[in-house]
Write a protein that binds this DNA or RNA. Structure first.
Ligand SMILES: [Zn+2]
Length: 671
DNA sequence: GCAAGGTC
C-alpha cells in the first residue's frame, strides 16, 4: 500500500536536503504553500512531503492575565500569537498544518537534540492533533549528507522519543517559572519605592553571568598590587643586538635585583648550552561558534552577537554550513574534496586550495567540541556574492580556518642558548620557520614571527652590553569583555551556543553591566545583592547543574515533567512570599537615594561606607575583604622592600592597580 | 513588559 508521509524539519535548509536525499531520482518537486517552500519526494511507492518549521513554533504563555506574581498557570500556544517579532512563523505553522491533512504517517526530522524533539512534538500535538501523535516516528541524523539521511530514514524509531520530549518540556517550564516570577518580583519591588520605567529581569543563565562580572569587580576593587623586579639585558654579537632573557621572570625582593645587577652588569658570560629542536605545531581544528566568535573579536573587535548575525547571513546564502554548532569536527561523510574543488574557483583561495587537492589533504584535524546535530563550521564552496564588509571578514576567517585545519603542521627550528654570567643564567632564543604548513593560509590570523639568532659555539664569550632592573607591580585579573564573558559561560556550561552572546547583550540592555571592558553597574550590584539575600539559587551555576540532573532522569524515563514542574513551584512559593513581604525595603535598597548613608539606626554600620557590618569586624563585607588583603599585602611589601606600615599605605594609594575599596580604607586610616 | 531556547 503506498503511503503519504509528512516529514517535519527544524529549518528550511534541512527540508531541502532531506527531500533531495530521499527522493529515488534525486529530484524532488518543489512547491509552495503560501510563501513557504516544501518538497514532494518519491521513495518506492511512498510519497514524502517535506516541510519545515523555523525553530520553535509553540512557546509558553501565562494562563490568564495580570502582570503580577506569583504566576504558576501556563499554557503552550503558537509563538506567532505571542509577539510581533515572531509573526512570520504563522505561515510556516499554517503550511505544516495545511499539508498534514490526509497523511498516513508523520516523521519528526528536527535537529538531533532535545529541543529538536520538542519542536516537532509541539507542532504535531497542538497543530495537527493527538491522532497524528501515535502515527509519528523520529528520524535522527547528525550530518545532512545523502548517505547518512538515507540510513537515518531506514533506521527510524517506531514512535516519538517521549522521554526526551518531556525533558525539553520540563526545561522550558522550569526556566519560565523562575525567569518570569523573579523578573516580575524584582521589577515590582523596584517600582514600589521609585518611579522606575524600565523592566528588570533575571534568569537561570542571566543570573550566574551577572554574578561572574560582579565577583570579578569585587576582586578588582579589593586588589593589592605586589611589587616585583624584572631584569632585562642585551648582548651585541657582530654588531647586532640580541636580548638576553633572565632565568627568573620575576624577582620578589629589591635586594635580589641589585644582586643580579652587581654580578652581571658589564660582565662577560659564556655560552654553556646550545639546544636546537624541531618543533611541529599541528593545524588548528575547524571552528565551532564559540571559537569563531572569539577569533572574530580578537582580530576584528566584532561583538560575539554581531559575529553570529554575520555567520547566519552566510549560512542563509548557502556559503557556509550551519553556524550554531559546538562541534570542532568535520565527519568523514562530508565531501571535503568536492568543497575544495568548488573553492578553487575563487581566485582568492585558488593557490592554497589547489595545493591541498594535489597533496590529497581531505582530512580536517578534529578538535575537542562535539555536537549531536551539526558538524564544525565550514564553507560550502559556493562563491559568495555581494557580502557586507563584516560578512566578508567572517567568511574569509571561516574559509582560511577550514583550509588551515586540512594543512600540514607548521615546522620550526627552535634554538635555545644558555649563557652563564657569574652563576646567573640568561637565555637567547631563536626561531626559524622551515615549513609554513597550515600557517601559510591562516597567515592573516596567526602571527608567527621568526627570531634571528647568530651561530654560537659552546664556550663562546657573550658580553652583557646592557642590563637594567625595573620595579613592576602585579595586576588584578583583567575585566571581562563580551568575548571572554561568553567564554566563561561556555566553560561554566550555562546557556547554549546560540543564546550566550544574546544573553550578554541582555545584561547590557538592562543596564546591569557597562563598558567594552565590562564593569558591573550600581543597578547590577543591587540586583546581585538582593538576589543573594532572597533567591541565591538564581545567581548560581548549581541551579543549571541540578536542573540538568533532573532532565537526565526524565530523558531516561525515570521521572516525568509534571514532577519537576511542581517541585519548581514548591521551591518558588516561599521565595516569592518573602519578596512580597519585603517589596518596599527591596525597592528602597535598589534605589540610589540611600547610597552611602547608614541603613538603619539599630544596625551596626561599616565605618567606611555605612553598609551593614559583618560580625567581628568594623567593616561591611567588601571593606572587610579589602582590609584583609591590605594586611596580607603588607607582609609581601615588607619582604620585597622593607617598608614600614605607614610607608606602605602611603605608597599603595598611589600605585595604579590598587582597588578602590582598599584605597577608601587607606584614606580613612591616613586621615 | 519578564526566561531560555529554537531560527528568519
Ligand atoms: Zn563598607
Amino acid at each position: 500500500m503506498p503511503s503519504r508521509i509528512l516529514i517535519i524539519t527544524e529549518k528550511p535548509s534541512s527540508a531541502r536536503k532531506i527531500a533531495y536525499a530521499l527522493d529515488d531520482s534525486g529530484s524532488p518537486r518543489n512547491a509552495k504553500y503560501g510563501k513557504v517552500s516544501f518538497y514532494v519526494a518519491d521513495r518506492g511507492d511512498d510519497e514524502l512531503v517535506v516541510v519545515s518549521a523555523v525553530g520553535h513554533l509553540y512557546s509558553i504563555e501565562q494562563e490568564g492575565g495580570g502582570w503580577t506574581y506569583p504566576v504558576f498557570g501556563i499554557k503552550w500556544t503558537p509563538t506567532y500569537t505571542q509577539s510581533k517579532r515572531a509573526s512570520y512563523t504563522k505561515q510556516y505553522l499554517d503550511a505544516i498544518t495545511g499539508l498534514a491533512q490526509n497523511m498516513d504517517g508523520y516523521v519528526s526530522a528536527c535537529d538531533y537534540d532535545q529541543e529538536g524533539s520538542l519542536i516537532a512534538y509541539n507542532i504535531i500535538k497542538h497543530g495537527i492533533g493527538d491522532k497524528a501523535l501515535v502515527k509519528s516516528r523520529r528520524m535522527l541524523y547528525s550530518t545532512l549528507t545523502t548517505k547518512e539521511l538515507v540510513s537515518a530514514w531506514g533506521s527510524m524509531s517506531s514512535s516519538l522519543d517521549f522521554p526526551v520530549i518531556a525533558a525539553g518540556k520540563a526545561r522550558h517550564e522550569a526556566d519560565w517559572l523562575f525567569g518570569i516570577n523573579l523578573s516580575r518580583a524584582l521589577t515590582i519591588s523596584a517600582r514600589s519605592f521609585i518611579d522606575y520605567k524600565k523592566v528588570l529581569s533575571i534568569g537561570r543563565v542571566q543570573g550566574p553571568a551577572l554574578k561572574f562580572v560582579y565577583d570579578l569587580e569585587q576582586s578588582v576593587q579589593s586588589f593589592i598590587p605586589i611589587p616585583y623586579w624584572k631584569v632585562s639585558a642585551e648582548t651585541v654579537i657582530d654588531g647586532i643586538t640580541y636580548s638576553l632573557e633572565y632565568e627568573k621572570p620575576r624577582l620578589e625582593r629589591e635586594v635580589h635585583a641589585k644582586d643580579v645587577a652587581d654580578a652581571c652588569r658589564g660582565k662577560t658570560g659564556k655560552a654553556v648550552e646550545i639546544k636546537t629542536e624541531e618543533s611541529r605545531t599541528p593545524p588548528p581544528p575547524p571552528f565551532n561558534l564559540g571559537d569563531l566568535q572569539r577569533e572574530a573579536y580578537r582580530h576584528f573587535k566584532m561583538n560575539p552577537s554581531a559575529t553570529l548575525e554575520a555567520a547566519e547571513k552566510l549560512y542563509l546564502g548557502a556559503y557556509i554550513s550551519y553556524p550554531r554548532t559546538e562541534s570542532n569536527k568535520i565527519p568523514p561523510s562530508i565531501d571535503v574534496k568536492d568543497i575544495l574543488e568548488n573553492l578553487s574557483k575563487n581566485p582568492v583561495y585558488m593557490v592554497e586550495v589547489k595545493e591541498l587537492i594535489s597533496q590529497k589533504r581531505f582530512r580536517s584535524r578534529p578538535g575537542k567540541g562535539d555536537d549531536p546535530a551539526h558538524p564544525a563550521i565550514h564553507p560550502t564552496g559556493q562563491k559568495p556574492r555581494r557580502l557586507k564588509p563584516e560578512e566578508q571578514r567572517i567568511y574569509d576567517l571561516i574559509v582560511r580556518r577550514f583550509l588551515a585545519s586540512l594543512g600540514k603542521p607548521l615546522v620550526q627550528l627552535k634554538t635555545d642558548v644558555t649563557v652563564d654570567v657569574n652563576g646567573h643564567l640568561f637565555f637567547m632564543r631563536g626561531v626559524l620557520t622551515q615549513r609554513q604548513g597550515w600557517a601559510q593560509v591562516y597567515a592573516p590570523y596567526y602571527m608567527s614571527k621568526d627570531q634571528h639568532i647568530p651561530e654560537i659555539k659552546k664556550g663562546q664569550d657573550i658580553p652583557v652590553t646592557k642590563l637594567s632592573t625595573r620595579r613592576q607591580y602585579t595586576k588584578p585579573s583583567p575585566r571581562y569583555n563580551a568575548s571572554s564573558l561568553v567564554r566563561k559561560m561556555e566553560q561554566e556550561k550555562i546557556g547554549t551556543k546560540a543564546t550566550r552572546s544574546n544573553i550578554v547583550d541582555t545584561l547590557y540592555y538592562r543596564g546591569y553591566i557597562k563598558g567594552q571592558s565590562i564593569f558591573v553597574s550600581e543597578l547590577g550590584e543591587k540586583i546581585v545583592e538582593t538576589l543573594e539575600r532572597y533567591c541565591p539559587e538564581i545567581i548560581q551555576v548549581k541551579l543549571t547543574r541540578d536542573l540538568e540532573e533532573e532532565l537526565e532522569y526524565i530523558a531516561a524515563g525515570n521521572k516525568d515533567a509534571e514532577t519537576v514542574f511542581s517541585d519548581v513551584v514548591a521551591e518558588l512559593k516561599p521565595i516569592l512570599t518573602k519578596f512580597k513581604e519585603n517589596e518596599i525595603q527591596i525597592g528602597r535598597s535598589m534605589s540610589n537615594t540611600i547610597q552611602n548613608k547608614p541603613a538603619e539606626e539599630n544596625i551596626a554600620c561599616c565605618k567606611i561606607c555605612g553598609h551593614e557590618r559583618v560580625d567581628t569586624s568594623v567593616f561591611c563585607h567588601r571593606h572587610h575583604v579589602a582590609y584583609a588583603n591590605i594586611e596580607a599585602g603588607y607582609q609581601q611589601w615588607r619582604y620585597a622592600l622593607g617598608y614600614q606600615w605607614l610607608e606602605y599605605l602611603e605608597k599603595l594609594v598611589k600605585v595604579s592597580g590598587s582597588g578602590n575599596y582598599a584605597k577608601e580604607i587607606i584614606t580613612d586610616i591616613l586621615g
